[in-house]
Amino acid sequence: MSDVKKFMYLNRRAPYGTIYAWESLEVVLIGAAFDQEVSLMFVDDGVFQLVKGSDTSELDMKNFTPTYRTLGDYGVRHMYVDKASLEARGLTQDDLVEVAWEDWETEEEVDNIVEIVDSEQIAKLLAESDVVFSF
């Protein structure tokens, strides 16, 4: 038995209108210190969290969209996006931020860990996780 647990962060809310997206991101950033296998899932309005080109300068609010791009450095290995949610919102992968990942020891690299998946894959990924955190 391995001590490494599979953590899944399930994000279903739009950013900026409520605090959920930022709270989830903060927990991921803090939790990254614990060396678990961390994945993020974006479903429903959660897919809006990854839409690039955000400018909050007129809102007096922190722009945390660029922060998702550093999650690979925090050991996040997978960021999954629900295909159906994306399509219902008229979005494609081109609208989303890209997140690079690199293993600092082996120098194995992945250009973009943001991956579009279908319902069946999502069900499987959630079922395989040890813990699911919902935001």
């Binding site: 990254a32 660029p66 922060t67 550093t70 450095d73």
Partner: peptide, 9 residues
Amino acid sequence: YQIAPAVRV
């Protein structure tokens, strides 16, 4: 990235 990095990072 709009945040200060953790020491590890």
